[in-house]
Amino acid sequence: MKRKLKILFVLIAFSFIAAGIQAQVDADKLLKSVGTRLSKINGYTVDLLIKVEVDMVKINDRKAKLTYQKPNKFKFDSEGFLLLPKTGMEMDYMKLIEKQANAIYIKDEFVNNVSTHLIKVIPVDPASDVVLAEMWVDPKKAVVMRMKTYTKESGSYLVNFYYTNHPYNLPDRMIVEFDVKGSKIPQKIAGGEFNSKEKELLFKDSKGKVIVIYSNYKVTTTPK
């Protein structure tokens, strides 16, 4: 009886270790599958509608055109002025996948009603601004549903991606949430409020949000 229990214990322990190794392999594979899907795309142009929701900033929705060229060239064109968050606007997971990084599977989670694998990605390059990224990846479509990135210079930011049925599974909506706390501007730039006692405008709310709606994708792909 004792022997049987020992064998059972060893089997259970082995299955856990095996599952762990399997999960580690899965995370790398998962990241690779996202990379493989993206590698088919050489570049694209897309129309953007950008909504900025930041405390103290008032700006109308802006239209722009984004041109992406492999491997990581992003160009924004607009007739008017664009105010964009410094982080999260350039599909940063592409850069992470492209460069060498270690991926660790953490757990399964639902993001926007889609079952995803949460993986932690640690860039190998010590010069990388990104210290750690958490990615929620839909394994069926090989798309990143959510990404939280921790950087050395720009704090952390969260990006949520929304997809419909684009042939290359490119997002049709993206919401970037980022830190703006502590940002301040001298008020007398071009005429401040008369009698105002405020010498500086301080961003009181710590979070900013930018919603980007993508439409009219024109994708160029690698010939098979």
Binding site: A64, F76, S78, G80, F81, L82, L83, L84, P85, K86, M89, S154, F178, D179, V180, S183, K184, I185, G208
Partner: peptide, 11 residues
């Protein structure tokens, strides 16, 4: 200061 958080695109 604000350019630490934002990119300015345009003149």
């Amino acid at each position: 200061n604000i350019k630490e958080s934002f990119m300015f695109q345009g003149d």
